[in-house]
Design a protein around this nucleic acid. Structure first.
Lengths: 133, 133
DNA sequence: GAATGTCAACGACAATCTTCGTAAAAGATG
DNA sequence: CATCTTTTACGAAGATTGTCGTTGACATTC
């Protein structure tokens, strides 16, 4: 039957695509040259251009003219992309358990007291949210 | 230059690969037929076999003879795979901030008071761990 | 021992990703 | 205008993924 693909909600990004999206999210936007520089120039100019064209085709970025060059900018928010990626990981790797994900996340990482405090307040907020109404 | 690829530490799993690894992590092991059934049978037998062979080639799974069939089992632990995936997401999407990841994780999800309590105690443990030495 | 059923191996195929080379447009400079 | 430089467009090539069809091995059953 081979399931048609049509529009369909966005799948995850591949490694290289994510590299490029990461730059755009961080910087807000970028020309091909700027993105390439941000990547450390270890990829060719046309490669970066091609990836941006593919991402645009997929609806992940847009562009506007700026002088002779194009300025690319993200069309999908990082938080939404992150949410989808996390859902996938929670379901497929941590059997739906956010706790286990959190445990793995904090394993092997160092946190300041302030960071931990802020994470606690995130949990506080969630708890209050779920309280009644 | 084209960086040689040789051995290199494991990259992430693709969607279909992750489907299959997910089954093996959950069940502990499986024959081709078992994995296929767990996937809902919407993929052909040879497809599942092929994916397992590819995963084996990558070192993600192993197999042993069981009667006439092979029994496949994971060689990479789910927690390690999860850790790598999380690192990638933290760095590329959340700009290195585990807090922001946590905020996104708990957004749009419902948690019981017990779950939140357990997540708090995970943070407690991390805090005590980092206290002095 | 011939037919049937289960299973792995092999190879084909299309789709996608990633990499560029080359060409072409278009402004800048002599 | 001829030539450089910057930039996009086109398309090809290699690698990987995901899908199977076919074949052949091997065991079970008549």
């Amino acid at each position: 039957m081979t399931r048609k693909r049509e529009k369909q909600e966005p799948k995850g990004f591949t490694d290289r695509e994510l590299d490029i999206m990461s730059v755009l999210w961080r910087e807000g936007s970028g020309t091909v040259t700027e993105v390439r520089e941000a990547l450390g120039e270890d990829v060719g100019y046309t490669t970066v251009l091609k990836m941006l064209q593919i991402l645009e085709e997929k609806g992940a970025v847009g562009h506007e003219q700026e002088g002779r060059a194009y300025r690319y900018f993200p069309l999908v928010e990082s938080v939404r992309a992150g949410g989808r990626a996390l859902t996938r990981i929670v379901n497929k790797i941590f059997h739906g358990s956010a706790e286990r994900l959190l445990a793995t996340l904090v394993e092997d990482r160092e946190f300041s007291a302030e960071e931990i405090a802020r994470m606690r307040s995130i949990l506080d907020r969630v708890e209050r949210r779920g309280d009644d109404g």
